[in-house]
Nucleic acid binder design. Structure first.
Lengths: 230, 230
DNA sequence: GCGTGTCACGTACGCTGTACGTACGTCAAT
DNA sequence: ATTGACGTACGTACAGCGTACGTGACACGC
């Protein structure tokens, strides 16, 4: 018996196996051993099917939230959970990312993330902003890692190796070794840590401000801010 | 006379006017008043044409680099230049982002960015990492802004407004006003500022470490770090 | 038995990218 | 002046696409 779930699963498998370009209704139908039009009894259109694929992948994000952990660690864990899924379904991730989906799938991650941020001491407005910034970073990173980089990220290596003119691009030329290689895990963790620390500084600044003016001038967040601005 | 540039330009215009889905070789040919196959005298395939589109858009990034400005401000300016282009060619930006291109177009931005980061005091390895992190954030932000959000970012607003169950998603439900609205400029600047500050803290920490151990324990970046970690 | 629904299917239409053959310039060598 | 090569534009043709539509097989409450 054909049903929506079987179709979506077949689509995900096909995407991972042969890439998003290989996906066609005929191909999926063949994969399932049914006629093409039978699919349309369960899925209104190909676009809707791809939306369902995105939703499906997103819903697979595993949550092992540990409420006893420090909020900074919980943020890291959630970011890594997202990333793990993307690595498990790399090609489908591209579908997720390049598709505007309006469903409530993946709302659970948002709920958890916002709760964590509220716990960290941010008000609603700030929590949402932090979340959006975080998602931007994670999504951007995945886009690079998963192979569909905007540009120049891990760089095509060998292909261009001799093409860069040191006179025109001295810095790029000098840093080529670092540009050519890219340890995705390290890079991700580096940015993650930077972001978490930045958030923590903000949180500390908030706490200071709320704790009253008296001790407000102590070193911590304040000095960090000053150093940053000048 | 037909040539590659006219074709690429027509493609970009068509994408912006009617969306990437509307792009077909026949459509572009019609737009230029030529036969379909004539295009193939100047462009090897549709995929190559889209690569050319990406390259073209990327090369339009305007650079008003001000070497006299503080490096933090230069970072902001470069990020905003990237973003401006994306807003000028929103639909083409999606093409840029969802396409692995290996050309050296857009290498100039990289050169400038790396130079700026070196100037800020980062070594090669760190500069590259900072750049990658930055690109990830900017690209992720643009993906959200340009309309093809991975998920839940500005949220489809009205459509879901009643759908969220406050019992299941208390925090999302509570923060709905903030989730529904999204001032892209503000959000972008918020994340940008956070990142720049985080980078500045890192740079300051580096400077401290290099300046010798004696004054290493002074307030600034150090205290900021401490606060962040605990 | 008989409507009424659901589900798988086949056919058909208009679209796609592009391989291939053709026809018409222009330029170089004869 | 004639010839040949070459580059460019074009038309035709083919395989594949998404999907609208109609048909037939089966299960159900009456």
């Amino acid at each position: 018996m054909l049903n929506r779930n079987r179709i979506v699963t077949a689509a995900v498998e096909l995407i991972e196996r042969e890439g998003a370009d290989a996906v066609s209704m005929r191909r999926i139908a063949a994969e399932l051993g049914v006629g093409v039009m039978s699919l349309y009894n369960h899925v209104p259109s190909k676009a809707a099917l791809l939306d369902a694929v995105a939703e499906d992948v997103l819903s697979r994000i595993g949550f092992t939230d540990d409420p006893s952990a420090h909020w900074t660690e919980r943020v890291r864990i959630q970011a890594r959970a997202f990333r793990r899924i993307a690595h498990h379904y790399p090609r489908s991730t591209m579908v997720v990312v390049s598709r505007q989906l309006s469903s409530t799938a993946g709302l659970l991650p948002v709920e958890r993330a916002l709760a964590t941020l509220r716990e960290a001491g941010f008000d609603g407005r700030e929590a949402v902003r932090m979340l959006r910034m975080f998602i931007a970073y994670v999504v951007g990173s995945l886009l690079r890692e998963v192979g569909v980089t905007p540009t120049f990220a891990p760089v095509r290596a060998d292909a261009i190796i001799a093409e860069v003119d040191p006179a025109l691009f001295p810095v790029v030329s000098e840093l080529r070794p670092h540009l050519d290689s890219c340890d995705h895990d390290e890079e991700f963790e580096f940015g993650l840590e930077l972001l978490v620390q930045a958030m923590a500084v903000r949180a500390a600044a908030r706490a200071d401000a709320q704790a009253g003016r008296g001790a407000g001038e102590r070193g911590g967040g304040r000095a960090g801010h000053g150093g940053a601005r000048q």
